[in-house]
Simulated assay, not measured.
Amino acid sequence: MKLGILGGSGLYAMPALAGAHRHAQETPWGWPSDVVVEGEIGGLPVAFIARHGQGHVLAPGEINYRANIAALKARGCTAVVSVAACGSFVDELPPGSVAVPHQLVDRTVGRAKSFFGEGMVVHASMGHPVSVELGARIADAARDAGAAVEVGGTYLAIEGPQFATRAESLLAKAQGMTVVGMTAMPEAALCREAEMAYAVAAFVTDFDSWKDEAVTTAAVLEVMAGNVARSQALVEGLCRSLAARPLAVPSAEGWEVALDSAIVTARGHWPVAAAARLRALAPRFFD
């Protein structure tokens, strides 16, 4: 297998990448956030993209999520791990800990959330949006890196770029959300459409705004700086684990066959241009 790594806030490079080479990977949906850096970590082939670009120049709502996922798929990735900063709604996940959520709630707006449309109607199943096995491997690697870990729970994806108001934060906590971030959606949905496993390593930087102190950028950046080495160690451990024992196929979530029963448009009505654009994304259907 080959692992795609989306480096979030604070993770802009992977020093452990052996034999690194860079690709300017254009896709039918445009250019990804940055060049794709490929190589090996712990014997596992990997492809790395800095989600926010070098120097953190892209806000969450400005990221070309489709191009990022399509570029990783074009480079041969079969699974994607998202390394991301998040806020916590529970005392059990203080700053410095790692959440590995199993569920997602999407409250983003205005983002391109599908590779399909324009004559191609597809309804991919998102009942179980995260690969539980990949999440378990992330959790093991996080513990080995010295982090406290909570597995399960729900990631709330908000549009940003502002942090939540106290009222929004209290509402999300009351609704049972576990952590909050700005990038896991539409990443998870796009990975499902591309038939790739997806999971999040969410590094907690703050308690959002439900506690007495409102979250600030300065506080987030301070915690994030301390998370860099730990996030790199997590990725290295995860790669060693996957090199020794790749993800099981067939998977519990069926991510590797997500399009089998999802395409509604009859083949005879597929637009030529749309099918050509989708060839690299799902070659077993569109070649």
Rank of each mutant, 00 (worst) to 15 (best):
Q232R: 13
A74G: 13
V235T: 02
W31P: 09
M120T: 03
R75L: 11
A99Y: 03
S261N: 12
K73A: 04
R267W: 00
A218M: 06
A18L: 11
V100W: 02
A202V: 03
A199S: 04
D212V: 13
R277N: 12
E26Q: 14
P15S: 10
I63R: 02
R277A: 15
T27L: 13
H21E: 11
W29G: 14
H128D: 06
G43C: 07
A50V: 04
R107I: 00
A233K: 02
M182W: 01
Q175Y: 07
L11W: 05
L190I: 08
L234N: 02
L238E: 03
H102S: 05
I63V: 10
Y12M: 13
H23D: 15
L259V: 05
L190F: 04
A243M: 01
H102C: 05
L234S: 02
L234G: 06
A71V: 05
L44T: 04
G117N: 10
A147D: 08
F285L: 13
A262F: 03
G226C: 05
G4T: 02
A248C: 07
T178Y: 00
V235K: 14
V215I: 12
L281G: 14
H123V: 05
Q232K: 14
G160T: 02
W29C: 15
F163W: 00
A194W: 03
P129E: 06
A266M: 12
G135L: 00
A67F: 05
A167G: 12
T154D: 05
E40P: 09
A262N: 04
V223Q: 10
A50F: 11
A59M: 14
W31Y: 07
L278N: 10
E213F: 05
K211R: 12
T165E: 01
R240G: 10
A258E: 07
E236M: 01
A244M: 04
G146F: 00
E38C: 12
G226A: 01
V80E: 08
A157V: 00
N68V: 02
W31K: 14
T265Y: 04
M182V: 11
